[in-house]
């Protein structure tokens, strides 16, 4: 009896120790990830923060300055236009393509996989300069259209991965055939059967693309520069003028990304819980 009790205690102790180092590890990771964000938040409201550990005083003055900037509204608008257009464009390009390859053109799959790694392989600077060199005639030359095209290509892997995984998870082949045997054409099947079943994949793809493009700097700076100033461009500009205002911009940028993410997730979970509710109600 005694033996088993001590054994039990030992086991419990072991469990606690394991839990202890796990917490430490997770804590260290969170600290590493959060410290820059927290510092940015604090810096955006600090009066002076170079002689003390904590800021000497707090103020919202920089947020005023940030929002008063004549470019604030325009850059914000441009960034939203760029991100949302890109999300829309990659949805329209990627979803039917991946679906078609999955059900009709399996042979093209390796090619598609390679294409989707390419954007990671080519340095952004090279991509931007090459595009600028090639597209020299209007309406593309150094235009937002060229930028959107470039950003769509650049962010494609972020849409491709989740969509492709989601399509593989459902038996899209048999579902398609079932739909066809019931008299539906491929387009109707895509809209009514495939898309609703890969919706979570579309959602996370959209989220990743939005976040990536909203923070995109290199392509925007090199392709359009001041002609189509986006939020990241304004932010970088202000790091040279006033660090606190730049921090305020960063915080605003974070917040927008957060809100949009939450919004997309909310739409996703709402459509899901709506269906579970109907299930439970009956």
């Amino acid at each position: 009896m005694n033996n088993t009790e001590t054994k039990k205690k030992k086991e419990e102790k072991n469990k606690k120790r394991v839990a202890g180092w796990q917490i430490a590890l997770v804590g260290a990771f969170l600290f590493y990830m959060l410290i820059p964000i927290i510092s940015t938040y604090v810096f955006s409201v600090a009066t002076r923060w170079d002689r003390t550990i904590l800021p000497e005083g707090y103020t919202f003055e920089f947020y005023g300055k940030a929002t008063e900037s004549s470019y604030f509204g325009i850059t914000l608008r441009n960034s939203l236009i760029l991100s949302l257009t890109t999300v829309l464009a990659s949805l329209i390009i990627i979803v039917p393509t991946v679906y078609w390859v999955q059900i009709r053109l399996q042979r093209a799959k390796p090619l598609l996989e390679v294409l989707m790694i390419l954007p990671f392989g080519i340095p952004t600077v090279v991509l931007a300069l090459a595009l600028v060199r090639i597209y020299t005639v209007p309406p593309f030359a150094r235009s937002p259209f060229l930028l959107i095209g470039a950003v769509v290509v650049y962010s494609m892997p972020f849409m491709y991965r989740p969509v492709s995984n989601a399509l593989q998870a459902i038996d899209s082949h048999t579902l398609t055939e079932a739909g066809q045997s019931l008299g539906a054409n491929i387009f109707r099947i895509l809209i009514e059967v495939i898309i609703p079943n890969i919706f979570p994949g579309l959602l996370s793809g959209s989220l990743l693309v939005f976040a990536t493009v909203f923070a995109e700097f290199t392509l925007t700076s090199l392709i359009v520069g001041a002609r189509f100033k986006t939020f990241p461009l304004l932010l970088v500009e202000y790091t040279r003028i006033n660090g606190n205002v730049a921090a305020a911009f960063s915080v605003i940028s974070f917040t927008i990304a957060w809100i949009v993410s939450m919004l997309i997730l909310w739409v996703g979970t709402r459509s899901k819980s709506a269906s579970t509710e109907t299930i439970q109600a009956r």
Binding site: D171, T174, E177, A178, Q180, L182, G183, V193, P196
Partner: peptide, 20 residues
């Protein structure tokens, strides 16, 4: 094409539409 043949099919894996 299969969707104009007026031929019904039942599959081994059922293939019901999960979202409906």
């Amino acid at each position: 094409p299969p969707n104009r043949r007026d031929i019904g099919m039942v599959f081994q894996a059922y293939a019901l539409f999960p979202n409906k």
